[in-house]
């Protein structure tokens, strides 16, 4: 019986260790936490987080497929992304609500918005004045929304822009 208890303890330790590896070390609130939590009832609402430990491990193991991505990811501590489904009309309303909240809150600045015939297809937000500490990328496509948050100390936008050119 003692042996079985010992095995279970060992297993639980290993499981907790495994889960612990995936927890983001930084619990700072992102745009997802601030403006998208209220939509958690939407279809297929899902948040995934690449915690600081995971980003660090991926960097250290050289797992990125491109050196430019590796360089950018050295500036990133945590990556978080959200996606869910809703009707295209509702998604446009959500974007309008988020935009209004961001303008009012004065935390995030709209960096770039791509709009065709009054339909928004993507918006980029940044946080931080001199140093960008958060980069948010929202894309809408046929009833599907995706929000990606890159959190770091100083994210260089030019490095990201030149990524396609360097490929």
């Amino acid at each position: 019986m003692k042996t079985i208890i010992a095995y279970f303890s060992l297993l639980l330790t290993m499981v907790s260790f495994s889960y612990g590896q995936q927890k983001p070390a930084d619990n700072a609130e992102t745009m997802i936490d601030l403006y998208f939590k209220s939509y958690s009832g939407e279809s297929k609402y899902q948040i995934n987080t690449m915690g600081e430990a995971m980003v660090k491990r991926t960097n250290e193991m050289g797992m990125w497929t491109h050196p430019s991505i590796a360089r950018i990811m050295k500036q990133v501590k945590t990556y978080k992304y959200l996606n869910f489904n809703s009707s295209p009309e509702n998604l446009q309303k959500i974007i309008a609500q988020v935009s209004a909240a961001a303008n009012k809150g004065n935390i995030y600045k709209e960096y770039f918005r791509w709009e065709t015939n009054d339909v928004v297809s993507s918006v980029i937000y940044t946080k931080g004045d001199k140093k960008i500490t958060e980069l948010d990328y929202i894309t809408l496509n046929k009833g599907h929304i995706s929000v990606s948050c890159f959190i770091g100390d100083n994210i260089d936008m030019e490095s990201i822009r030149s990524l396609v050119a360097n490929k």
Binding site: S122, I124, Y137, I160, V164
Partner: peptide, 11 residues
């Protein structure tokens, strides 16, 4: 990686 390329393309 897909996100970074997409942001880069958009910018």
């Amino acid at each position: 990686e897909a996100d970074l390329f997409s942001i880069s393309k958009t910018l």
